[in-house]
Computed example of a mutant assay.
Amino acid sequence: MSRAEQEQVQEQEQGPVAPPRSVTVVGAGTIGLGWIALFLGHGLHVTVNSRRAEAPAVVADALELFAPFLPEGTADPDTFAARLSFEPDLERAVAGADVVVENAPENLELKQELFERIGKAASPGALLLSSTSTLNPDHMGARMADPSRLVVAHPFNPPHVVPLVEVVAGEGTAPGAVQEAVAFLESVGRVPIVLHKPILAFAANRLQSALLRESVHLVREGVVTLEELDRVVTNSIGLRWATVGPFLAFHLGGGQGGLRKWLGTLGAGLERGWEVLGRPSMDDATIRSLIEQAEAAYGHRTYEEWVRVRDARQTGILRSLAEADRAGNV
């Protein structure tokens, strides 16, 4: 009997799996901190696994910074401390957790070691998630006795605000684990998209990388400055893509004929247009120019101040879209 069939029989015998109440977050870097805030906001008990002595102070600062921008209806930040604990020992941190979310650096050997240890120490039914932006779950779980519970759940930064989470399974991942991952992510207000097959860098980062490449080209060639390029995006395609995706945008761009008409007229020269897109060299001069322009444009505010600006704007957009959907019965 396959693992999937075993899970189906188990569910029929035991009934639906109880929703997770405890999460262990491995790593307190940028992504881990966002996850911690999100999970606490949704009433979960969170154990933070970090060997940094200053981890409690770092988490406290992040919660103060992120809490105002958590989704509406989440828990009062005053309740967070009672559901938050710290455990530097990995095995003790994951023991008994319903969900483990790993956020270590993008180093395959490191992640293989972590998941080998997590697999031995975590409960057999624990859901094991990785925030990796590039790695295949089969590769990360290569040293595990049972990698069937390991699923990629790649968030888009900042994870406490941006809803998307890319869910990626490996050949050794049990279908039930993917379903549990989707259900868990939806329970904390995320929008999980299950990729139909693994691909390097997944989907969202590949799109971002393509746009970044042309952005660097336009700035490098002096067409616009770095700050002007940002304003070009936020006042055009950024606004458009916050409401409709690229394909729906061009489907609407074709008027009554939709994408069929657009591809036959305006879109007929797409390949010729792609041929003239830039392939900028990231040499020392280019890197130096980008850094200097970024510091000149954005150096008047601290990191924390820009985070508040970013999260306030993105939260405002999400709330406005939700209101528009409710008003229009979308």
Rank of each mutant, 00 (worst) to 15 (best):
P20Y: 07
A174M: 02
V191Y: 09
E292M: 04
V165E: 04
P105H: 06
W241Y: 15
N205P: 07
A181R: 01
E109Q: 14
E13V: 12
D61F: 06
G238P: 13
L164W: 06
L135C: 01
P105A: 09
W274D: 04
A183L: 13
P137G: 06
L252I: 08
G27Y: 00
V152R: 03
P124L: 06
A62F: 00
E275W: 05
V188G: 06
P105Y: 05
G257W: 04
G170V: 00
V46R: 01
Y303Q: 10
D284M: 10
D61Q: 15
H196G: 10
A201S: 10
G125P: 05
M282Q: 04
Q8Y: 03
L263I: 07
L90Q: 11
N49K: 08
A153E: 00
P16H: 12
T315N: 13
F115D: 04
A60G: 14
R117C: 02
A104W: 11
V309T: 05
A37E: 03
L239C: 10
L128Q: 00
E186G: 04
F184M: 02
G255C: 09
G269Q: 14
D146H: 07
F250N: 14
E109V: 08
R52F: 15
A82P: 04
F115N: 03
A60M: 10
Q8H: 08
A145Y: 04
P246H: 11
V26T: 11
R206V: 03
A104L: 09
F86N: 01
A145R: 15
V26R: 04
D61H: 15
G96P: 11
T302N: 08
R313A: 13
G29D: 05
F66Y: 14
A82Y: 09
L211N: 09
E180G: 08
G273R: 12
A203Q: 06
D78L: 13
V182D: 06
D89I: 01
S215V: 13
A81W: 13
A285C: 05
L84F: 12
T134N: 11
A4T: 01
V58L: 10
L252M: 13
E5I: 11
A57L: 06
E186Y: 01
V100K: 05
F86S: 05
L252H: 09
R149Y: 00
R326F: 07
R319C: 02
R260Y: 10
R92K: 14
P175V: 08
